[in-house]
Computed example of a mutant assay.
Amino acid sequence: MNWFKQRILDNSTLLKFLLVGVLNTMVGLGSIFILYNTLHFNYWISTSLGNILGIICSYILNKSFTFQSKKSANKTIWKFILVSIVCYLFSYYLGHLFNIFMHTNDLGSKNKLIENTSIFVASVLYTLCNYIGHKYFTFKKD
């Protein structure tokens, strides 16, 4: 726990990452909900496109502001994309399983509420997974 507190919680990059995350959330999650609820795209298309927009915004802001990385884009962008894809698949698959669980156990009488909740839960997991991946892999200090 001490390692976690010292490395994760007491680090100013976490606060910067969360601030950037607010903007990413407005871009990415906002896009997801518009695509899903207004334009009626399916779950996977909505979450994929929304996260692509969020990833672009996130890369630019996290490289320059959060982690202040001087590494070239050639060295970091592929890592950023890899971490983002792995976190996306992991997080949104768990969100999808949550959605299935709620419907299977007849707890999904309010389909849109359950589906939107699963998207929100998945986005929280996605944020945590991304922070750890980008801090210790993508923008790791040499």
Rank of each mutant, 00 (worst) to 15 (best):
S12E: 14
G133L: 05
M1R: 05
C87F: 05
T138N: 06
G133D: 10
L61M: 14
Y131W: 10
H96V: 13
V20N: 10
N51D: 03
F98H: 03
K70C: 15
I132Q: 03
G28P: 11
S64A: 13
I85V: 12
M1T: 08
F139V: 00
C129M: 08
K63D: 15
A73N: 09
N37Q: 10
N37L: 12
F67S: 06
I100C: 00
F65N: 14
K79T: 04
S72W: 07
F101P: 04
L107P: 11
G95F: 01
K135R: 08
Y136R: 09
S109W: 14
S46E: 04
F120V: 14
E115H: 04
G54F: 05
I60D: 07
T76L: 07
G95N: 10
S12P: 15
L49Y: 06
F120M: 13
L39H: 06
T47R: 00
H96R: 15
N42A: 13
L94V: 15
N2T: 07
L128Y: 05
T66S: 06
I34N: 01
G54P: 09
G28K: 01
F33G: 03
L89K: 01
S31T: 13
S31L: 06
T38G: 13
S46A: 13
G54C: 07
L9K: 04
L125S: 01
Y92S: 02
S69G: 06
Q68I: 00
L61A: 12
N11F: 03
T117S: 08
L61R: 07
I56A: 08
Y43P: 05
I114D: 08
Y131H: 10
I132V: 10
L89T: 11
K16F: 01
K110G: 15
R7E: 09
S69L: 02
F67M: 09
F41V: 07
F98T: 06
F4H: 14
A73S: 09
C129Y: 04
S91M: 05
V27W: 01
V20E: 06
T104Q: 09
R7F: 05
Y131A: 09
I52N: 02
N24K: 11
W3N: 11
K75G: 06
L107I: 07
F98E: 00
I34K: 03
I56D: 02
L23P: 15
Q68C: 08
L19N: 12
L23N: 14
Q6H: 13
I77M: 10
I8L: 02
Y93N: 12
Y43G: 07
I81V: 11
Y36W: 06
C129N: 05
T138C: 06
L107K: 12
K110I: 12
C129P: 01
D142P: 14
S123Q: 08
M1N: 08
V27Q: 01
V86G: 10
F17M: 05
F90T: 11
